[in-house]
């Protein structure tokens, strides 16, 4: 079956569903019209010197280049593409991670102190601390004194957890196993921020905590995940003590590759007993 045929069938199915939901528009009436967003990224520079050059440049980056202009402004299609992507990204912030994904990944679900998304967005501290039940669970059930503890956080993108973690997490775990690095069972912490890793480190008494956290959705992707690593955090730990590795998703750093790379970084960190700027400026042998 060719792609166009599939798309057509899917669209027809969607149309059926829409009308089933009690939509009172009759699409069979003679004045009914359907509009579909053309998602192709097309080069639309007027009379370019070399169209192929621009098409090739387009293939090198997800950035919005080769889009041409009318006067000094964007052409209508590109302006609307931008606004549509922004609308989708805004909506993505308010979705929760699907339970079935957590089950498949065998991740116990802990929570921060943020009761809802509004509190999570507006009160940083709420997302930086575990709620009472989660802290107790970690105290009782987590494996202590391991070298590494992995934390998965939804952060600002549940889509990032759903789409990227299923490839990233197994690759990271495999990398640690190959190197003989010990780690406790990874956990998921709902509505949590990076700094929650400090509390996790204290409760599990591990050397390195690595947080895999959904990045705020961009227009190009909402699947991106960042890894934040810290070596033995304490009350004096600052931002510059954390090592960050961002843009992990299929269109950025591929998740499987990132998992293997992060295992290497962790192994180095354990050897140098440091993270962040101090780790970055270590003497390479």
């Amino acid at each position: 079956m060719d792609v166009e045929k599939i798309i057509k069938e899917v669209l027809e199915e969607l149309k059926k569903n829409t009308s089933q939901k009690g939509n009172d528009i009759d699409e069979h009436s003679p004045d009914a019209r359907t509009f579909t967003h053309d998602e192709r990224k097309i080069v639309s520079v007027d009379n370019p010197k070399n169209l192929q050059t621009i098409e090739h440049a387009r293939s090198l980056t997800p950035a919005r280049i080769g889009i041409g202009r009318t006067g000094t402004r964007m052409k209508t299609k590109h302006y609307l593409d931008f606004r549509i992507d922004h609308a989708a990204a805004q909506d993505a912030v308010f979705k929760d991670v699907d339970d079935s994904v957590l089950k498949e990944l065998n991740l116990p679900e802990l929570r921060s102190r943020a009761k809802d998304q509004e509190e999570y967005l507006m009160n940083l501290d709420a997302g930086r601390k575990l709620d009472k039940a989660s802290a107790e669970w970690l105290t009782t059930h987590s494996e202590k004194d391991k070298q590494v503890q992995i934390v998965v956080s939804d952060g600002l993108s549940s889509t990032g957890v759903e789409e990227t973690i299923p490839d990233l997490l197994p690759a990271l775990i495999q990398g640690l196993q190959v190197k003989g690095i010990t780690f406790g069972q990874p956990v998921f912490i709902k509505k949590s921020r990076v700094w929650v890793q400090d509390e996790v480190a204290t409760l599990t008494n591990c050397d390195v905590v690595i947080s895999l956290i959904g990045e705020r959705p961009g227009l190009a992707t909402s699947k991106s995940v960042s890894a934040y690593l810290v070596y033995r955090p304490n009350e004096k730990t600052v931002e510059a003590d954390r090592t960050v590795f961002s843009n992990i998703h299929e269109g950025g750093v591929p998740p499987v590759e990132a998992g293997a790379y992060l295992a290497d970084v962790i192994s180095e960190m354990l050897r140098h007993k440091a993270s962040g700027v101090r780790f970055a400026s270590r003497k390479k042998e």
Binding site: A63, R64, H78, F82, P217, G218, L219, A220, S224
Partner: peptide, 11 residues
């Protein structure tokens, strides 16, 4: 490019 920073994810 296009107001969309594809690395930093902001406009």
């Amino acid at each position: 490019p296009g107001g969309d920073d594809v690395m930093l994810s902001y406009q």
